[in-house]
């Protein structure tokens, strides 16, 4: 599996994501600077990392979503390429219009940084195939703006179409319907607030995040 990690000014989980992808796919991902306009040929996965791109100016993810590279990412997503956005990457995907809704300030106004329990709501996606539906896993979150918001009809559609992939199994940030991660209609774009790349090795406290990447390897080769 050939992957790439997009680096925005202010990304800070790009190297964690690169380590996880390197270890689990066996191939070092290509690091792509946000000003690049062309993606390397033959990519199977494009990953948008966590962090505070552009210092969260205007709205989290707003400036990065208008970066030159995002035009190429939108085109690649439209062509069916797998796209994973973690934390700030999820915020960028909503701002870029690749996923519906928006991520607002946490309901408690606090920056939340801890392991949280998640329920796998749908294991029928390439991103969640190595989990069982309704399984509870633990993955760390670290965000200030993770409070998922969308119109009621959008929320109903997400649930009806099985596009809610991960839900919080405890109170975290006030997200509508406890949404922690969603996919687009064709299932090739996932955005999630928790950080699976931070939990890929039992020596570092757990490996529940590892299976997300293993599922992608199985699905994408």
């Amino acid at each position: 599996m050939k992957s790439a990690v997009v680096v925005f000014p202010g990304s800070n989980c790009d190297r964690d994501l690169a380590v996880a992808l390197h270890e689990i796919t066996g191939v070092a991902p290509v690091m792509i600077w946000h000003r690049d306009t062309v993606l390397p040929q033959g990519l199977d996965l494009i990953a948008l990392p966590g962090g505070f791109s552009y210092g969260d100016y205007l709205r989290s993810g707003a400036m990065s979503a208008r970066s030159p590279v995002m035009r190429a990412v939108v085109d690649a997503a439209g062509a069916g390429r797998a796209v994973l956005g973690v934390c700030n990457g999820f915020q960028v995907l909503t701002e870029a219009g690749l996923l519906p809704g928006a991520l607002m300030r946490n309901a408690g106004l606090d920056f939340v940084c801890r392991d949280v329990a998640l329920t796998v709501a749908n294991s029928q996606t390439a991103f969640s195939a190595r989990y069982d539906t309704n399984e509870t896993i633990r993955i760390p979150v670290a965000h200030h703006d993770g409070n998922y918001t969308a119109d009621e009809d959008v929320l109903d559609r997400l649930e009806g179409e099985g596009r809610v992939v991960f839900r919080y199994a405890e109170a975290v940030n006030g997200s509508a319907r406890d949404i922690a991660g969603i996919v687009n209609t064709s299932g090739n774009v996932l955005g999630l607030m928790p950080h699976p790349e931070r939990l890929i090795d039992d020596a570092l406290g757990g490996s529940d995040g590892r299976r997300l990447f293993e599922g992608l390897v199985a699905a994408l080769g």
């Binding site: 205007l58 707003a62 208008r66 809704g101 928006a102 918001t149």
Partner: peptide, 9 residues
């Protein structure tokens, strides 16, 4: 529309 506001919210 393009940047200053997010029409979703």
């Amino acid at each position: 529309q393009a940047l200053l506001a997010n029409p979703v919210i």
